[in-house]
Structures are given as structure tokens and as C-alpha cells.
Amino acid sequence: MKSIEELIANHPFLEGVNDAFLKEMAGCARNAAFDEDTYLIRESQDADQFFLIRNGSVALESYAPGRGALVFGTVKENDFLGVSWLTPPYRWQFDGRAKESVHAVAFDAKCLRGKCEANPAIGYELMKRFVPALMRRLKAARIQMMDVYGGPTDGGVLESAE
């Protein structure tokens, strides 16, 4: 069985982080597993963790009255879940639901923020990984907002299927 330090060292998100920093970060980490349809994060609750997804996938959702939970993204293995732990008020903005069995490394956010405050070089290493990932997600979200595909016509004359 791999140690937490090995698990985070092998995760693509932390590729290239030096051993000393990984050891520091491992002090804030634990193994975590989630069954299908259980929640890793819940909207409005304290963003007190950050996850590296090892396998499985997580649906990012928000609840709309009358429409139920709307899924707007999927976080999959080798990616990370959780940004709200980085900035005050440290509160989750959306739900994260395991679409299947999920194995992850969970970091205690307060502990990790403390390590970054004590050693800003660790924080800088993390920012070098978070910022490009957030740029990718922002770009994807912006394209999704444009609704470029079109789809079934909304309203108008409905024709019965033959």
C-alpha cells in the first residue's frame, strides 16, 4: 500500500513539486473514498478541504427549484476538486457528487493554508498549478456559455416524430 506522500507525488497535478514540499503537504493529507452518489462537497458549507482525484469522477452541480440538480461540469481522475478553500470566505459554491466510486487524497485546507503562509514557496508551487488549471476551466466555461452547439428548438411549432 502506497503512503500518502507517494500518492500525492504520483498525482499529475503535483508533478514536479520537490520532495521537501511534498513531505510538508503530505502532513495535511489523508486518503478518502466516496461511494456513488455521495457528496464530496456541498454548496454553502465550509470549504475546509481540497481533493486530488485518484480515480472515479465527480459531477459539479447546483440545485434549481423545480428543475432539480443541474450538472455543469465533471471532474475526473488526475484532476483536482475544490478552489473555494483558497480564498475567503472559504465556502463551497457548488455541490460535488461522486458519479461512481471515487478515491481521492483529501487535504485539510486550514492546514495547507498554514503551510503556505509559513513557507510561501509552497504556496507559489500550488499557484503555478492552480492558475493554469483555472484558466482552462474558465475558457471552457466561457465557451459553454456561448451555447455554440444549438439543440432542439425551443418553442415554435412542434412536429410529431414519425
Binding site: 459539479l60 440538480a69 443541474l70 450538472v71 455543469f72 465533471t74 475526473k76 459553454q144
Partner: peptide
């Protein structure tokens, strides 16, 4: 898909 209800088991995203 760009967006889906929670019953959708596939991927959501670009």
C-alpha cells in the same frame, strides 16, 4: 454535454 440533469451519467464539459 454542456449541461445536464443529475440523472445523466456521462461527462459534462467542453
Amino acid at each position: 454535454v454542456d449541461a445536464a440533469a443529475s440523472a445523466w451519467r456521462g461527462d459534462v464539459g467542453l
